[in-house]
Amino acid sequence: MSEPWEEEGPGTIKKFMYVNRKAPYGTIYALESLEVVLIAAAFEQDVSMAFLDDGVYQLKKGQDTAGIGMKNFSPTYRALEGYDVEKLYVEAESLAERGLSEDDLLVPVEVMGREALAALMDEQDVILSF
């Protein structure tokens, strides 16, 4: 397997950001967005995920879905590292508004302020929002 920077020819690398603004379970967006990211990892693009607004709830520790009869997909966020998806950005304001802190999250992330996140969004080539 060649690394992306060793590729020749038309191997363009674009910056893809997956923007998550929705809570899990109430709708399927969080789960199916995660499925896109797992597939995208194979394309050796520059992938990052942003969690803001209710999207931060996707990363809440201690999810237990036994009582609602749905699959708990939160462990998958911890598997992302194995897919080389390591850039997980969480918006500080969104956490604070919801009474959450970094300790409440189930995976290591980079917490950043709204302005920094906005600047990061502006650097992307493709923004996929779910």
Partner: peptide, 20 residues
């Protein structure tokens, strides 16, 4: 087809526009 077709569209196209 697979989700790879979406990623490919993101790579190949000048613009990817999302409707949801």
């Amino acid at each position: 087809s697979g989700l790879g077709q979406l990623i490919e569209a993101g790579i190949q196209c000048d613009r990817l526009v999302v409707f949801g």
